[in-house]
Amino acid sequence: MIQEAKRMGREGFFGSQSLFFATLTLFIMYPFVVSDYYIDVAFFFGIYALLGLSLNIVLGEVGLFDLGHAGFYAIGAYTTAILNTKFGIPVLILLPISAAAAALFAYVVCSPIIHLRGDYLCIVTIGMGEIVRIALINNPFDLTGGPNGVYGIDFPSFGGPFVIDSSIEYYFLIWIVVALSIYGLIRLQKSHIGRAWNYIREDEVAAGASGIDVRYYKLLAFVLGAALAGVAGNIYASKLMCVSPESFTFWESCLMFCIVLIGGMGSIPGVLIGAAFISLFPEIFRPFAMYRMLIFGTVMILLMMFRPGGAWPRKRGAAEHPPLHPGKEGIDG
């Protein structure tokens, strides 16, 4: 029985074990056969994958509208940037600290608003993201460097001789972090936490009535999602060596939102597909110059027309029932 479940879990994700190893080999080989430029493209694919995974916890697993996720991403990036440039703390040591800072921020900000529903929560998260961005521009306490941001962030290291300073190493850094996150998130999906989250997504009132602490689990989703976004912020800041408020606009939050929905809510392989779409599409269509975003918009509409559940919707096991009101998405109206 357990063997069976394990096998199904694996097959649901990669089809089969051999396909999994083929993908793995491809990922390891990739940076050795292409130019630095394409390694960087794959790096940003990884960043978007991590951001997508982080928003997927909030939006995909619990069904909370979060259009201000770039705020958490910004907190992570700026924590790294400020602590590294002002106090010289090595970037890799700041990785968990950035995650914790973003998580703490999420906890403080989301505690009073977690009871809001649907679109009201949506606008408050938008407001939160905008407040973070404007605060960064206005340079409070002379910390954030205003519109120019913070420059001169170190390469990731623990302070010793081990330093990540080439595109290939960055590529492996981000994808190892993504792989670990995916592993953790799959475990989380199957745990009682993941089930509680999905229950809240499908029917919040019933979940509360069955003894699930709705408020606690919603906050937990925000805190974990923010922590993961903080990790992405840390790696992003050290890769670009500078951070500025322009990287954390409402538009960025919208992109993350699209990653989750294009891939399929709550589906981890879906997030990877969505991130690939968002990050690779503009590269592939570069020859079309100014028309490429026109094509991008059109493709987004077409995708939703033909695959409204996402490119790789989450498979529902026998234990999970389809939503009670199809078309209403389980999120309150």
């Binding site: 699209c258 929905l261 294009i262 918009g297 987004m300 509409i301 939703m304 409204p308 559940g309 998405e329």
Partner: peptide, 12 residues
């Protein structure tokens, strides 16, 4: 298809 795909379509 529901509300959320429509939001993505609106963004598109």
């Amino acid at each position: 298809a529901g509300r959320l795909p429509a939001v993505v379509s609106a963004l598109g």
